[in-house]
Design a protein around this nucleic acid. Sequence first.
DNA 1: CTTCATCATGAATCATGGTTCACTTTCCTG
DNA 2: CAGGAAAGTGAACCATGATTCATGATGAAG
Lengths: 186, 186
Amino acid sequence: MTQARPLRADAVRNRKKILDAAHLLITRHGPEVPMDAIAEAAGVAVGTLYRHYPTKTDLVGAVLSRHVERMTLAVEEAADRVRAGEHAMTELTALVSRVIEAAAQDHAVKAAAQGVGASYAPENDTRAAAALTELITAGQADGDLHSDVTVADFYLLLATAPLDQPREVRDRWLTLTLPGFTAAAR
Amino acid sequence: MTQARPLRADAVRNRKKILDAAHLLITRHGPEVPMDAIAEAAGVAVGTLYRHYPTKTDLVGAVLSRHVERMTLAVEEAADRVRAGEHAMTELTALVSRVIEAAAQDHAVKAAAQGVGASYAPENDTRAAAALTELITAGQADGDLHSDVTVADFYLLLATAPLDQPREVRDRWLTLTLPGFTAAAR
DNA sequence: CTTCATCATGAATCATGGTTCACTTTCCTG
DNA sequence: CAGGAAAGTGAACCATGATTCATGATGAAG
């Protein structure tokens, strides 16, 4: 229903080269990298970018989707481990740290969401939300997590992480922030 | 040493109109408002903007300075009150909330720092830092504030506030975050 | 009331970067 | 292997927005 005829071989090849180049450059320099730069890095002409992604926003969105997908997998894996008996709070903490570090690396990927009006909306990622809910519930059952903490709270936490700060600052920030999620505090 | 001859009357007048207009527009629409728009709002020609502020960055910087100045006064006032006997932790909490709300209003003012490379660097504001240190020390003396909390931690807190979120989210965020600063937690 | 140093004006200039499209090249089917 | 559709190319086009500067206006000193 989507693809009347399959993509031509060279088209497939180029599409990948473009996405890779875009990912690299956007990660490194932010979403404001010129299309020309991405094209050059991909070894393709600008026109080709536009054949595959009708607009820059679309391209950025595609890169973003990759990132979100990876993060979703991370959450689901954590949920799996907990289901297999691992300590929920431990997994949750590690997960938060992992997601933040990934985002800090991919820096611009995050900024991309704002900068361009690319579709990000983690709230919409049902899979991630489901897995995260599972983790939260488990943590609360263990009495480690404050009972009123929600998925939205975690998204808020991730959204406010100081991604542009050096690692040590990010760590300090986690130390300062996490207590608010703990059952004991408050 | 700075002003060989005093500014001409109309120059003074225009300078103020420009700063006011810039403040308004940057606050409302962010630092990306065109210079032309600011000029129009100020009832002046673009050229005049450039006479007073050689570069857009300078103009944004000037607007920023105003904001920082206001915030500095807020901190100093809080310190004064504590010195006069008020409860330090209470003042500190109120101060954080006040500064965040102000920034949320002035939204763009904050964004301005990033967007344009305008000089912001709150760390450099010695006066504010001094007053804040006083508040922190007092809070720790009362046993309300965790003993390892520093001025930098508060700046980090402010820097990560979700300014673009609605009021309720900001409040929730404070509820979640502040416990990490409390002596009891951790 | 001159006079001129300041200041203001705003059209023109420059730079950047997204997007288009007439034309060429490449795949793939028959 | 010929033919046409699919894909690629990149110079040109367009929009936006910062910055300049030749020219005109206006404060203030004498």
